[in-house]
């Protein structure tokens, strides 16, 4: 019970310290900020050890046999090469795992984008032009794609298509803005509720 009370007071104090940033930078905010950054960085180290390094590399190396065991040396060596940055003369070796990671990311990104974005987007827009909604949707998609065509300057009537495209983009952003603000306000309400209910117990 006493632990819960202490926990609530610490959480409330840190919440107020962070919110004091709305007034201006002050020692309370600085303390909360440094504590937060330090704790989260420390937690990150434990997380990498407990959820990545130990179960995925060390434990598997001990448990697996044959190819499945020795293949683990590849990521282990790549990881160690990242540390070569500490040693001036062989520091260039850290570029190897970097290049490997970037290459893998770009390669996977191609199929993931086609599969996750391009095909569903095409399919969702293959609509007959029989209703106003469908017409707006199809025109919106085409003009928005044209806006992101960078290989030439659009002049004459095509220029208006680009302007129409940016209108569609901005309308979409406006809707997204309102939607997200609503979600953020609910987060703020949650925090205020914690202060008034769990801490001060006035509601």
């Amino acid at each position: 019970m006493i632990v819960n009370i202490i926990g609530t007071w610490i959480a409330a104090g840190l919440t107020i310290a962070i919110l004091s940033f709305l007034y201006k930078d002050n020692p309370l905010y600085k303390f909360a900020e440094h504590l937060y950054v330090g704790v989260s960085a420390g937690f990150g180290v434990i997380y990498v050890w407990a959820f990545d390094l130990k179960p995925m590399l060390i434990d598997r190396f001990i448990e697996n046999q044959g190819v499945e065991r020795w293949i683990l040396l590849v990521p282990a060596v790549l990881g160690l090469l990242m540390l070569s940055r500490w040693f001036g003369k062989i520091g260039y070796l850290s570029r190897l795992p970097l290049a490997f990671t970037v290459g893998i990311g770009a390669g996977l990104g191609i199929t993931a984008s086609i599969q996750g974005f391009l095909l569903p987007q095409i399919q969702a827009t293959l609509l007959p032009l029989t209703t106003i909604n469908n017409i707006i949707l199809v025109v919106g998609v085409i003009t928005t794609i044209l806006y992101f065509y960078f290989s030439r300057d659009f002049k004459g009537p095509f220029k208006y298509l680009l302007e129409l495209g940016i209108i569609f983009i901005m309308v979409s952003f406006g809707a997204s803005f309102g939607y997200t603000v609503m979600a953020r306000i609910s987060l703020l309400i949650g925090r205020i509720f914690f202060l008034l209910s769990d801490w001060l117990r006035i509601i």
Binding site: I18, F21, D25, Y29, K30, A32, E33, H34, Y36, V37, V39, S40, A41, F43, G44
Partner: peptide
């Protein structure tokens, strides 16, 4: 830090 809002707090500071 690799924590979302920890990072935000740090950059703000």
């Amino acid at each position: 830090t690799s924590d979302q809002f920890g990072y935000a707090a740090g950059v703000d500071g």
